Simulated scan of single mutants.
Amino acid sequence: MNITKYVLVLLVMPFLFGCNSDDYQYPDKYLPNYNFSIDIDMSLPLYTPLQFTANPVYIDQAGIGINGIIVMNTGGGYVAYEASCPNQNLDSCSKLAVDGIMAICPCDEAEYNLFNGQAEGKEYPLKPYRIQVTSGTSIRVYN
């Protein structure tokens, strides 16, 4: 009987620990998941702030994210987040405002740090998007 339990545990272990960190699924309680992709050429004037650390750029191009995206150079790489409040239903006040290295939700005044996407006392962090550096001055943001 004990051998059966051990065999069962060994068979289940790969399913429990076989997940890749790339497979992270952001909870979609408030924010739906829309597929998009954008190539950003940082040599263009609109995106040159991304060549320097802690200079976020808000991109509100149609079809990119829900309310657009916020992209920032962290000094160790790039991050991209959805520009919608992650702890609020989509509403007229759920579009984030960028203030320096903080993104502020007008609905509840929550302040999210753009280096890590976290806000003190909030259930969900900012919704992250994937980044791929395609050349020295170009990146691709997608989900």
Rank of each mutant, 00 (worst) to 15 (best):
Met1Val: 08
Met1Tyr: 04
Asn2Tyr: 06
Thr4Ile: 13
Lys5Val: 09
Tyr6Asp: 14
Tyr6Phe: 13
Tyr6Asn: 14
Val7Tyr: 04
Leu8Gln: 12
Leu8Trp: 07
Leu10Gln: 09
Met13Gly: 08
Met13Asp: 10
Phe15Ala: 13
Leu16Gly: 14
Phe17Asp: 05
Phe17Asn: 06
Phe17Gln: 04
Phe17Trp: 15
Gly18Met: 01
Gly18Trp: 00
Gly18Thr: 01
Cys19His: 05
Asn20Thr: 00
Tyr26Val: 05
Tyr26Gly: 03
Pro27Asp: 03
Asp28Lys: 07
Lys29Arg: 13
Leu31Cys: 02
Asn33Phe: 10
Asn35Arg: 11
Phe36Gly: 14
Ser37Ala: 13
Ser37Glu: 15
Ile40Met: 07
Asp41Trp: 08
Met42Gln: 07
Met42Ser: 05
Ser43Lys: 08
Ser43Met: 13
Ser43Leu: 07
Leu46Asp: 12
Leu46Trp: 04
Thr48Phe: 05
Thr48Ala: 09
Leu50Thr: 06
Gln51Lys: 15
Phe52Asp: 15
Asn55Ala: 11
Pro56His: 05
Asp60Trp: 00
Asp60Leu: 00
Ala62Met: 09
Gly63Val: 05
Ile64Phe: 06
Ile66Asn: 08
Ile66Cys: 00
Asn67Asp: 07
Gly68Asn: 01
Ile69Leu: 03
Gly75Ala: 09
Val79Cys: 13
Val79Pro: 02
Ala80Ser: 11
Tyr81Pro: 05
Tyr81Ile: 02
Glu82Tyr: 01
Ala83Pro: 05
Ser84Cys: 08
Pro86Thr: 08
Leu90Gln: 04
Asp91Glu: 11
Cys93Gln: 10
Lys95Gln: 05
Lys95Glu: 04
Leu96Pro: 01
Ala97Pro: 02
Val98Cys: 02
Asp99Phe: 11
Asp99Val: 10
Asp99Thr: 14
Gly100Cys: 03
Met102Ala: 08
Met102Glu: 15
Ala103Thr: 02
Pro106Asn: 08
Cys107Gly: 04
Asp108Tyr: 13
Glu109His: 15
Glu109Tyr: 12
Glu109Gln: 15
Glu109Cys: 14
Glu111Pro: 01
Asn116Lys: 06
Gly117Glu: 12
Gln118Ile: 10
Gly121His: 01
Gly121Val: 00
Gly121Asn: 02
Tyr124Lys: 12
Pro125Trp: 07
Leu126Asn: 03
Leu126Thr: 02
Lys127Cys: 12
Lys127Asp: 09
Pro128Asp: 08
Tyr129His: 15
Gln132Phe: 06
Val133Asp: 04
Ser135Thr: 06
Ser135Lys: 02
Ser135Gly: 05
Gly136Cys: 00
Ser138Thr: 10
Val141His: 12
Tyr142Phe: 09
Asn143Phe: 06
Asn143Asp: 14
